[in-house]
Simulated assay, not measured.
Amino acid sequence: MSVQKDVDNYEDQINKLAKAVAFSVNIVHSGESDAAKDNMPFFVNKDKFKLNPDGTIESLGEDEIDASNIGVNSAILDNVMNIKAGAGDNPGENDGKRALAIAKLRNTLFKIQNINLSQIDRERFIEDLTGGLVENKDLGVYTLESNLNGMTIDNYFKDTVDTLGIQENEARRIIGNQEKLLSNFEERRTSISGVSMDEEMANLIQFQHAYGANAKIISTVDELLDVVVNGLKR
């Protein structure tokens, strides 16, 4: 039960990371805090996302994104010109300012550890877990401010992996100690109730020699009695 609880905890942490990546990139990519107004999200729930032939979105499924279903929008995979890389609202603009703003998210602090997996959307993500959606005057795009109580995406992932490594080393140490303890118990039990083949063979040889010696004594006594009885007759 303890191991399963740890596994579930790590799954939750990775799912929080996936949501943080999806929400932050989609927000900057679209400049929208409302997912319903985003007609070209970058990351989607690949199991839920549906795009109609006319380009409208039938089902976004962004709120249900986790590590098992996160994927890049199929419309972007089919045509990279749908990526909003420029400062303008139109896809295909190539000044790269919005792409640079997305790249800067790597150093932005988010309260990823406080994400509620069952109750989270873009607006709550912005309000509760970031420093707000503000306009970057230099780039001319809306981007996310850091939350001083948060951590970067890289550091969050690194902390998760480091914690897993520490737990693995601790588990290996406990297993080693338990194996030594079990071995000691086995040796003690064997010393009390076990059978040693070498010891039993030595006992058999000892009993064999004792039997042979007794037989020799009996044979000698028999000879002595024979001498006495027959001698008296004569």
Score class of each variant (00 low, 15 high):
Asn230Met: 15
Met1Tyr: 12
Phe157Ile: 04
Asn39Thr: 14
Gly88Asn: 13
Asn79Phe: 05
Gly132Glu: 06
Leu17Tyr: 02
Val161Cys: 03
Glu223Asn: 10
Glu93Ile: 08
Gln4Ser: 09
Asp38Cys: 10
Ser183Gly: 11
Ser24Asn: 01
Asn26Lys: 00
Lys50Pro: 01
Phe49Asp: 00
Asp226Trp: 11
Arg189Phe: 15
Asn79Thr: 06
Asn214Asp: 09
Arg173Trp: 15
Arg122Lys: 12
Leu182Gln: 12
Lys180Glu: 14
Gly194Gln: 07
Ile205Ala: 07
Gly31Trp: 10
Asn155Met: 07
Leu204Gly: 06
Val228Asp: 06
Tyr142Glu: 02
Glu127Lys: 15
Leu224His: 13
Asp38Thr: 11
Glu123Asp: 15
Ile76Ala: 10
Phe110Pro: 00
Leu164Phe: 09
Ile175Cys: 05
Glu200Asn: 10
Met151Arg: 06
Glu168Met: 12
Asn136Ser: 03
Pro53Asp: 05
Gln119Phe: 10
Pro53Ile: 05
Met1Phe: 15
Gly55His: 02
Ile153Asp: 00
Asp159Trp: 03
Phe23Arg: 01
Ala18Cys: 09
Gln113Asn: 10
Ser68Glu: 14
Asn147Ser: 06
Tyr10Leu: 12
Leu100Asn: 13
Ser193His: 12
Asp54Lys: 04
Arg98Leu: 05
Ile76Arg: 08
Ile218Tyr: 04
Val228Glu: 07
Tyr142Asp: 02
Ile57Asn: 01
Arg173Thr: 15
Gly212Ser: 03
Asp54Arg: 03
Ser74Gln: 14
Lys233Gln: 13
Asp89Trp: 13
Asp154Val: 13
Gly165Leu: 13
Ala35Val: 09
Ser183Lys: 15
Ala99Cys: 07
Asp47Phe: 01
Asn90Phe: 05
Asn214Pro: 04
Ser24Glu: 01
Lys37Pro: 08
Glu179Lys: 15
Thr220Val: 10
Gly31Cys: 07
Glu145Asn: 01
Glu11Met: 07
Gln13Phe: 03
Lys137Met: 04
Arg234Glu: 05
Arg172His: 08
Gly92Gln: 02
Arg122Glu: 12
Gln206Arg: 14
Lys158Thr: 08
Glu11Ala: 04
Ala87Phe: 12
Ile192Phe: 10
Gly176Tyr: 14
Leu117Phe: 11
